[in-house]
Design a protein around this nucleic acid. Sequence first.
DNA 1: CGGCCGGTTGAGTACAATCAATTCTGGTGG
DNA 2: CCACCAGAATTGATTGTACTCAACCGGCCG
Lengths: 262, 262
Amino acid sequence: MPRRASATGQRVNGAGWLPKNLSVAKLQESLIAGKKAPLAKLASIVRFRKGTTIYRAGAAADTFYIIISGTVAAFQYAREKKHIAAFLYAGDLFGAADQGRYSIATMALTPVVAYAVPSSVLRMPLPEIADLHFYLVAKICDQLHQARHHALILAQLHSHTKVAMFLQMQKTLQALRGDRSAEIHLSMTRSNIAEYIGISLAALSRAFGTLKRRRIITYRGRRSVQIINAKAFQKLAGEPKSGTRFSVMPWQRPDLGRALRH
Amino acid sequence: MPRRASATGQRVNGAGWLPKNLSVAKLQESLIAGKKAPLAKLASIVRFRKGTTIYRAGAAADTFYIIISGTVAAFQYAREKKHIAAFLYAGDLFGAADQGRYSIATMALTPVVAYAVPSSVLRMPLPEIADLHFYLVAKICDQLHQARHHALILAQLHSHTKVAMFLQMQKTLQALRGDRSAEIHLSMTRSNIAEYIGISLAALSRAFGTLKRRRIITYRGRRSVQIINAKAFQKLAGEPKSGTRFSVMPWQRPDLGRALRH
DNA sequence: CGGCCGGTTGAGTACAATCAATTCTGGTGG
DNA sequence: CCACCAGAATTGATTGTACTCAACCGGCCG
């Protein structure tokens, strides 16, 4: 267990996080800025209203998307039950094709604004493409990490542990997106969380209730949670260590961000 | 639910699977051939005996590996309990770095032979690198798919369902590796499976027992399983559909395989 | 031959699923 | 601005499955 300095103090803010190659962070920043967007010439901007199915699994994948704002869920069905594989936020990318077909369905959980990029542009020899490729790869690695952490959550025995780990994860992701507030904002419903965590809605509700009664978390309304007792919370969720660090790079590439940044 | 022709009949053999871009399959083939290997000049060949920890999470990541033969487990600890995130086989790649450090530990479950590739070569401007990059990306996408399927398994309620889905997955992977035999060969212990599936060893044992007693599967010894009652098995595991198709391509690239193939 | 690791089996307990009734809440229209 | 409605969430009662602890088997290696 080597140095995990950053893990102890929740100091997982956007800056200072990527020692050498904060290029992805910068790329992301400029992508979700939206103004005079770098992708403007390659992509169009699309909107989805809450609840829209963006695409179904197996549909022809001619487009991929980069979220500018809003929350998207990637989901699939297993044995008649919906299972959410990932929540996607601003800067996240989805719709990478498998054999020209989408491998998993997606829907908008909130109103969503996104770039729609034709898959074909990835085969174009433009200079912008190199960075886009790199961004794509970095983001997919991100997704892999998150998926593995998701598996870790799903493997937990008790529902309140799952909930705590889930909240931990959302908090970390939120911090990475630059939100430094103490509150955890949940852009999905309880049902969504239950489908992600792999427990029944009833069990989820009880778990939330338990955590609140034990004065570990509070919430007013259903979309904003706050951790009151950090120590007890950590004991449940485990410290946010390796598996919780979600910004990944498959290989180093300290230079970057030429084309996309402008 | 559009055409899923390949999904119905288990015809997921190596050939005919990647309509246009069988390049990755070919790349993989030549990689695990080992003879006059394409990576010979870039990589060295290393061996690990069964049980060896190849690297720990957090260690400096100066090398990544491509398995030539054997089985590797990627694992991490959550709340004092070991959890296996993935089983890796011939052709699989592991050790991609996150900020220059490994993000998850790995160990050899069997004797393993692998290429050890210095991470630095990815930054070299050799023509071989382009294909290696592509291979790496394709493999990471693979891993993402598998991780999501893993999550699906973990989200199941009953232990025998998990076991059936696990066996299904192993069967599919085995088929993709070119093994057309009716038996499913398990290169990991029951404990390993339990750690992957997220149930106790006792429950796993009982689940195997149940499936055997119900004449859905058989096994002699512990490392080779056969499905007897395919229909009943499918009812448990669900048909091997989209989520079970593990060869992924993030974008199309019909040309390929120049440098690595020779 | 004996020990040890990996696996199976047994008994009792606890947690989460399910079904179902009730309450809450946020959005809509009067 | 308030009343109302429908979907979302909570809560209750019951059942079942997987967990734990623990004892026991069996094959493999020394």
